[in-house]
Simulated assay, not measured.
Amino acid sequence: MGTAAFQLCAGLNLSASSHLHVQGSTNSKFAPQSVRALPIRILSVGKKRSRGLQLMVDAYVEKIKYYCSVEDVLIRSNPRNARDQRAQVDDEDMAVMNLIRSDDWVVMLDEHGRDLRSEQMAELVADAGNTGASRISFCIGGPYGHGRKIRERANLSIKLSSMVLNHQIALLVLVEQLYRSWTILRGQKYHH
């Protein structure tokens, strides 16, 4: 983890005692316009999504667009039809890395990552704007997880649950939490 990643983690104050005021509060620790709204890109590896899941993801993406630009990118699982698991992960790893710029702030979703509460996710979104990055890229791995290159490139690794989540469920949880983060940061009421 590089120096900038360490500074962000330190800024997140990931101890149990850190507090932000809950959504809907006008007493948010962030001034309503003080957060630099970096564009968000979500890179997820997987098969074609069900229509129902895609509709729910799209609904949250539209809500997030009120606060910042957001892009949902699906990368086909096993893009070269590899016959073994290791080769598949390597191929997916390369496909993800080809979409990441040098000035992206990369957040990898991983079952062994840091466990964040919603308020800390909001702090992550806010603090990423102070890293010098031009975009936040959230990466969701395929059925066998992330490859070595993305693990080395990631600025931060987080988990959305203590339970292992299917990548499609992880995507839905992520977009919901990103929307919730923005309502926290702006001190606005969360709308379902």
Rank of each mutant, 00 (worst) to 15 (best):
S162E: 09
I42M: 03
R135W: 04
V175C: 03
H167P: 11
W182S: 07
L174A: 09
G141N: 06
I169F: 02
S161V: 07
S118P: 00
Q23C: 06
Y144A: 15
S162T: 11
C9S: 10
L160H: 04
V175W: 04
K65F: 00
Q177D: 06
S69H: 11
D93Q: 08
Y190H: 11
P32V: 00
K65D: 02
I42K: 10
A170S: 09
E111M: 11
G142W: 00
D103C: 08
D58H: 12
S137W: 01
V70G: 01
L124R: 01
N98A: 14
L20A: 13
Y190T: 02
K149G: 02
I169Q: 03
Q188Y: 02
Q33I: 00
M163F: 12
E152F: 00
Y66N: 09
I100C: 09
R80Y: 08
C9K: 11
Q23H: 10
A37F: 03
M163I: 08
R86G: 05
S137R: 00
H191T: 07
R83M: 01
N81E: 14
S77N: 14
N13M: 11
S15W: 10
L8I: 14
Y144G: 08
M1I: 11
R153W: 07
L55E: 15
C9D: 03
L160Y: 04
C9N: 02
V173D: 01
R148F: 07
Q23S: 13
P143G: 05
S181G: 14
R41G: 04
R135F: 06
V89C: 05
S69I: 02
K63M: 03
T3W: 09
V164R: 04
H112T: 08
S77Q: 15
S18N: 07
I158K: 00
Q7P: 03
K29H: 08
R51S: 13
Y67H: 13
L185P: 14
G187D: 03
A16Y: 13
Q188P: 05
H191K: 15
R180E: 02
D104Y: 01
R180A: 01
F6H: 05
L185F: 06
C9V: 10
F6L: 12
L43M: 07
L160K: 06
V45K: 07
S50M: 04
R135L: 10
I100M: 03
P79E: 07
N27T: 08
G2N: 15
A16F: 10
I136T: 10
D104R: 00
G132L: 09
A87F: 04
W105I: 05
R180C: 02
Q120K: 13
D127Q: 14
L172E: 06
Q85V: 09
Q85A: 11
L124G: 05
I158F: 01
A16H: 14
D90V: 00
L116N: 04
A126V: 03
D93R: 06
R51G: 05
N13C: 07
L124K: 01
E119T: 10
N130H: 13
W105V: 06
R135V: 12
V35T: 12
L12I: 07
G147H: 07
L156I: 13
N78F: 00
N155R: 03
A133L: 13
A4L: 15
S181F: 02
R114L: 15
F138W: 08
L55F: 08
G187H: 06
F6N: 05
R135E: 15
W105R: 04
N155Q: 13
N27Q: 12
